[in-house]
């Protein structure tokens, strides 16, 4: 009897794994088929107004890049504080918990917050608001990564640095960060991959634009928001553009993830 139950459970688990994989491959396969059918050179060289993706791809990158400029320095310094300066006091534990809470906060709520502070007072959607929303999304991920990776650096390295008389900030920047460089870089790469696919925080902060623009004071083109808008259009050609965008986005995110994995492996 025990053996039969054992068999049943093992088979069920295997089936669950297969079922899960079936769904997930179903997504990837449809995405690849639909994507390949619609991706061509034309969409990379034309803007949305001419049924292309160029302005959207560039816009999404700019938003994510500014988010990195906001989220990474702030997040890394906060992470350094948690690991190097706080001596794990109550305040640090509290901040760690808050940061984790923030990491799981619904992204659309971050969007409403940025709308309230950046869009409503100005009166119209603007690119800065979108970039800041993404930066806020990125901040807790960077804090967590830096905190974890610095925690892996052996204590002896710190002691060696202090023993030669270096001030602490020099020890941190010249020794500890260097030792944890690969881990932190990988974490940042994954954080970038995560925010570049975000849609909800951009919907009513930077919105979308059909034209090529680098002016962040107005509505700003975004690939993900465009996918959301186009996919529900009745025009089949526009839906195909959305699929092309979805394919390019997924491919990009997966490549970054694989790259991060590869870096970690190389290090080991």
């Amino acid at each position: 009897m025990r053996l039969i139950i054992n068999k049943i459970i093992l088979i069920l688990s295997t089936l669950a794994a297969i079922l899960g994989l079936v769904f997930l491959f179903w997504i990837l396969i449809t995405l690849t088929i639909k994507g390949f059918a619609s991706v061509n050179l034309y969409i990379f060289t034309h803007d949305l107004i001419d049924n292309g993706l160029r302005n959207l791809l560039i816009g999404q990158f700019i938003l994510a890049f500014i988010a990195v400029l906001i989220g990474v320095p702030l997040g890394m310094i906060a992470g350094i504080y948690l690991q190097e300066y706080s001596f794990n006091n109550k305040f640090a534990t509290f901040i760690r918990n808050l940061s984790d809470v923030m990491m799981s906060a619904p992204s659309i709520v971050i969007g409403t917050f940025v709308y309230a502070i950046m869009v409503n007072p100005i009166g119209h959607l603007n690119g800065w608001a979108g970039a800041i929303a993404l930066g806020i999304m990125m901040l807790p991920i960077v804090v967590r990564t830096t905190d974890d990776m610095l925690g892996l650096v052996p204590k002896e390295l710190r002691e060696a640095g202090v023993a030669i008389g270096a001030p602490k900030y020099k020890v941190i920047f010249n020794i500890i960060i260097k030792a944890a460089k690969v881990g932190i870089m990988t974490g940042l790469l994954l954080a970038f991959a995560r925010i570049i696919g975000e849609t909800a925080p951009l919907l009513f902060t930077s919105g979308n634009s059909q034209y090529f623009t680098l002016n962040l004071n107005h509505e700003f083109p975004s690939l993900t928001v465009a996918i959301y808008n186009l996919a529900t259009m009745p025009d089949k050609h526009l839906v195909d553009i959305a699929w092309a965008g979805a394919f390019v986005l997924t491919l990009f995110v997966l490549i970054i993830n694989l790259l991060g994995r590869y870096i970690v492996k190389e290090k080991k």
Partner: peptide, 25 residues
């Protein structure tokens, strides 16, 4: 490979799941 596939799928943006849901699922 299965472990990596699962982790990669966790990284796919949620809008892709939504779009797939609308048209296929």
């Amino acid at each position: 490979p299965v472990g990596i596939a699962i982790e990669l799928l966790a990284a796919i943006p949620s809008i892709i799941y939504g779009m797939w849901g609308l048209f296929y699922f």
